[in-house]
Computed example of a mutant assay.
Amino acid sequence: MMVELCAYGVLTGLFYQTLHQKLYVSLVGAMLGGRVIYGLVNAVFMGVAGKPYGFAAFLSGAFLTAWPGILLQLIVVPLLVFTLQKSGLWSRTLRQSE
């Protein structure tokens, strides 16, 4: 999960700040990318442990059991970003510190 969360942060920042995508596009893209990373890391760890890890296990772990968290992220993260932007504590463009 640590690697997946790292991928979320990196991908969201990349999509939102660098590629100038909309918030939901950035969030969904990062969530999909993070889940791909999750699957790859699990495949490596399961392979090292000598346990099978197939596509069905990936889909089950990454999407079926995770749907409450996915839904919560799609609701809470945009609300948090919009609240921070409206309050002036955070803007879409990076501010240069002097």
Rank of each mutant, 00 (worst) to 15 (best):
L32F: 12
V44E: 10
A49M: 02
N42Q: 13
I37V: 14
P52H: 07
L32H: 11
G47C: 07
V28C: 06
S26Y: 08
G47S: 10
G34H: 10
L27I: 01
A30V: 00
H20Q: 13
V28G: 04
M31A: 01
V41L: 11
V36G: 05
A49E: 11
G34S: 13
M46T: 05
M31E: 02
I37K: 15
Y53K: 06
G39A: 12
Y38W: 12
V36R: 14
F55M: 08
F45H: 12
A43E: 03
F45P: 03
Y53W: 06
Y24W: 15
A43Y: 08
Y24C: 02
V48W: 15
Y53M: 02
Q21A: 05
R35F: 02
V25P: 09
Q21Y: 12
K22V: 01
G34V: 01
Y53L: 03
L23E: 13
A49T: 03
L40G: 11
L23W: 12
P52I: 00
V25N: 15
V36D: 13
Q21M: 04
K51L: 00
N42V: 01
Q21L: 09
L40W: 12
K22L: 02
G47A: 04
Q21F: 12
S26L: 04
M46R: 15
V36A: 10
F55Y: 04
V36T: 09
V25A: 14
M46Y: 14
A30T: 01
M46N: 13
Y53G: 02
V25R: 15
R35E: 02
H20D: 12
S26I: 03
G54D: 11
Q21H: 07
L32Q: 08
G39H: 10
L32G: 05
G39T: 03
G33D: 07
V48T: 10
V48F: 12
M31L: 07
G39E: 07
R35A: 00
G34D: 07
K51F: 00
L40Y: 09
M31S: 07
F45C: 02
L27H: 15
I37W: 15
V41A: 13
G39I: 03
V48K: 15
F45W: 10
L23R: 10
Y24G: 01
Y53E: 04
L27C: 07
Q21I: 02
K51N: 06
I37R: 15
G29Q: 06
M46C: 07
I37F: 14
S26D: 08
G54F: 12
G54I: 06
Y53N: 03
A30G: 06
H20K: 14
A30I: 01
G54M: 05
M46V: 00
Y38Q: 08
Y38C: 02
G39L: 05
L23T: 03
V25L: 15
L40I: 06
G54P: 04
F55A: 08
G29R: 13
H20S: 10
G54E: 07
Y24D: 05
Q21G: 08
G39C: 09
L27R: 10
H20I: 00
Q21D: 09
L32V: 05
A43H: 09
A49K: 14
P52R: 06
L32R: 12
L40V: 06
A49L: 02
Q21C: 10
V44Y: 15
S26V: 01
G34M: 03
M46E: 10
A30F: 01
M46P: 08
H20L: 02
V36Q: 13
L23D: 11
L27E: 07
V41G: 05
H20C: 03
G29L: 01
G33A: 06
M46Q: 15
Y53F: 07
R35C: 00
